[in-house]
Structures are given as C-alpha cells and as structure tokens.
Design a protein around this nucleic acid. Structure first.
Lengths: 232, 232
DNA sequence: ACAAAAGTGTTGAGAGTACACCCATGC
DNA sequence: GCATGGGTGTACTCTCAACACTTTTGT
C-alpha cells in the first residue's frame, strides 16, 4: 500500500464513486434475453442501460448487486457471479465512476413482472437485437455474453436458466440457443450422464410424441464439471 | 441505475476509497514465490501485505496496477490480469475500502531488485510458508493461487514465469511446481507440440547430459489453448 | 398405421496415460 | 564405457463425433 510509507493517508485521496451493474439473462421465446432499463435523465437520457446503482457506504458489493437484481426482477436467490470491474476514467461524464459488473441467470417463470413502480421503463431485449446502450454498457454486456458461453462449456451453469424440473431436450435447447449451434442429441445426453450432474425425478412430461423424462439438478453435484467440456 | 428514477444523483452518496492490490508471483529456487511488503504503520503495523495502493481519481484501474507493480519490482510489460474485486465493509478498519485485486506473473531474472527507496521492507515469500497477512490479503492470495493453478490447466500462461528462451524440462518443472504434482515427460511434450504454442529457437543449452533444445513462446499462438487441458 | 418426439447403440478417429526405450554429451 | 539428462515410440484405454437406429406416445 502506498500509504505504508507514511506519506499518505486514506483521507488524502479524492474518492471515486462505485456502482454495481447487473447483466441479467433469461431464456424466453427461444432467445437469450437481457434486462435493460431506460434512463430518465442526463446523461444518456432515453438511452437503454444495464440495471445498476451506487454501492452504499455500509453495503457489501454483492449485496448491492442482489439488491439491484431484486428491485428489477423481484427475485432473490438466483445465480449471481462477479464478472469484472470496469474503471476507465471517462466512462461516466458526471464524474469518476468505477463499476463492478455482475452476471445473473434467472429462469423465465421465476420473474415476477415488476409494476413500473418508479416510472422507469424496463424490458427484456433479445441479445441478437440490442438497442444502443449508455456508458460502456455494451462492452460489459459483450463481456458477459462471452463469459456465459465460455462457462457453459465446462460448467453446469445452464440449469440456472431452466425451471427446477426439465427435460433433456429443453436443456439441450438452452445450450443450443446460448452457444448458437446445434448439438447432437445422443452425445449431449451421454456427456450429461457421465458428468453426473442431473438425476431423473421419476416424472414425465407429455409431448406430441413419446413422453419426456423429467430431470432435476443434483444438489450434491459439483458446480464445476471437472472431467471435460460439456459440448464440442 | 438507481439514479435514473430522478431521486438520486452522484453527489448524494458517500464514496468508498478504492485501491488496487497486486499478487505478484515469480519462480525462484524451485518455489512459487509472492512479493509482500511490510506495513510501517497502523493498521496491521509490522504485518506483511500485498503491494497496492489507492487509485488516483484520474487514473484507470489497470494503470494503477501497473504503477504499483513497477514501483515494487521495477518491471513493466509483464503478464497482468484482473482477478476479483473485494468489497467487504469491514475489510479495512480505517474506512470503507474496496480493492480491485490483480494477478501478475514475472520471470525471476527480469526483476530489478528495488533499493528500499522508501524504508518499506519488501521481499519474496514462498507460497508454502507465508506469514500472517494484513486485511483480507490471505484470502486474495489464496484466490490468486487457485486461479493460477486453474488457468495453467488450459492456457499457456506458464511461459510468463520463464525467460524468453527455455528448455522443455524447465517448462515442465514450472508446471510441476505450480500444480504440485509430477508430470510425464513424454506426454507433456506431446501436448505442447499439439497445442502449437512454442517453437524451437535453433539454439541449445549445455547440461550435464545431452544438450537441451531451447524454445520460445510463439507470438502468433492463441493464448487460450482451445483444444484440451495442457496436463492431466 | 403413421407421425412425432424420446431415447439408445455402434463405429472409427483421435487424445490421454503409462512405461520402456533411444540419443547426445562430459568425464 | 558409463553416467546424466534430453528426447521418442508404442500399446492400451477412454472420449469424441457422427449417424443410424429403436421406443413410446397421440391420432
């Protein structure tokens, strides 16, 4: 620490503002969607932005992220992961603002649509057709997308976007949507079986054809699938 | 952003201090070592800590990390990667301090030993025999170690700890020291060959036995070895 | 019976692992 | 020649990817 020399102390420094921004993904209409809110005032008035806000002085970072997430979606207890801290000096025209970005995954049916309780417009956008974003939020979103795709390759994180019980076809569809390529049914199933991260519930779901066995995520499964990547 | 509702503005918030802390690893005496500095004053007076310091108000985050690194080791242009941002409210007894942790890898012979230019004691410690650390620095260091070991499995980052030219035995030794297990010589070589990240320089190094071929890192190599993990 | 969707088996190619062996140098 | 360390070949196993196939339901 620079102040170990005795030449500086904590109060001598101008302090930056610190915010959290949360990239909230969900799966809806066969699309990966992200929640954006429309800014009501300068700067970037009318522009869409990631949900986020200032970190309170007595609030842990992650709790700030959880709070923002809850304010916008009404859900708590979802997958939340710190992504990266963005600290360019010119990223906010008002003053020096450092933002800690988080990645959240929410199953579509868990979202309680928020009554627009503070006149701020908020809606889900397809990640394939995004509007212009405020600040460096486009960069943050791209980073989040890259991380999500990458993470899907070697962890079981895809379950977080599905309901508690799901069929293998639904899970495969999730993966296909996110990574943007089709996967072989048989091989996908074999890998999941070997990874040992899901278990059948014993229930079935009616379909147009043969009923599909329902699975759930194994609570005792290791989040990190050590063995190999889950898809090609 | 919470202030989009119009109820808040930037100046309304008490701001935390923001620091960077850098976990600087090197390889020396067949050990993975980390650079620590001894604190001269309260809090944690006399205690060892990671090098770090406050982020200037007009200074990008990464530049602050580079600056700290240069102050302590005299080197620039080394491998530097943002690790994680630690934001517990009680991590610094002086006030709310959020720290952005960075991971740096420096080849031992690049280090210009710094004359103790500001009476602060600084030295390298083996990661196997660490002293008590100030703040939450032990947690940060453990996180850095985990990340380094993990990253070594699927990237070529190990080269950063070696001189520009190295033998395969030296490279294997690096990996063995960091992951803490012995590797099969033949298989290690085959994997590196397939990964296509190194090339022979044409030079040789004298040894007690047959001279060893020298290699260098391929500039055009992709940092991320997509194919497979580099070791079992 | 047929369509639709679930679910399985087979096969060849390549990667991982273990271990034995050969090669070049100094003394 | 022999010790020393660098460097290679081989054989067995496992995983991967592709693709054809069987099973169970509704109509």
């Amino acid at each position: 620490m620079t102040d170990d020399t005795g030449r500086y102390d904590v109060t001598r420094y101008q302090r930056p503002s610190v915010t959290v921004d949360v990239v909230i993904f969900t799966l809806c209409n066969q699309e990966l969607q992200v929640l954006l809110i429309q800014r009501a005032r300068w700067p970037y008035e009318g522009c869409w932005a990631l949900p986020g806000g200032f970190v309170e002085i007595d609030e842990p970072l992650e709790r700030a992220a959880v709070r923002e997430l809850e304010e916008e979606t009404g859900v708590t207890d979802v997958y939340l992961e710190q992504l990266f801290t963005f600290g360019r000096t010119d990223r906010d025209p008002r003053s020096r603002v450092i933002t800690v970005a988080y990645l959240a995954l929410v199953a579509a049916e868990r979202i309680r649509p928020r009554a627009g309780d503070d006149a701020t417009d908020a809606r889900w956008w397809s990640t394939y057709a995004l509007p212009a974003l405020a600040f460096d939020h486009r960069q943050i979103l791209d980073y989040a997308l890259t991380r999500l795709r990458y993470k899907l390759e070697y962890t079981a994180v895809g379950f977080e976007l599905l309901p508690q019980e799901f069929t293998l076809a639904e899970l495969q569809g999730t993966y296909e949507i996110i990574v943007g390529e089709t996967l072989d049914k048989a091989n996908f199933r074999k890998k999941l079986t070997r990874a040992n991260v899901i278990e059948p519930t014993g229930q079935f779901r009616q379909t147009a054809g043969r009923p599909a066995r329902l699975y759930r995520y194994r609570e005792d499964a290791v989040a990190e699938v050590k063995a190999r990547r889950l898809f090609p």
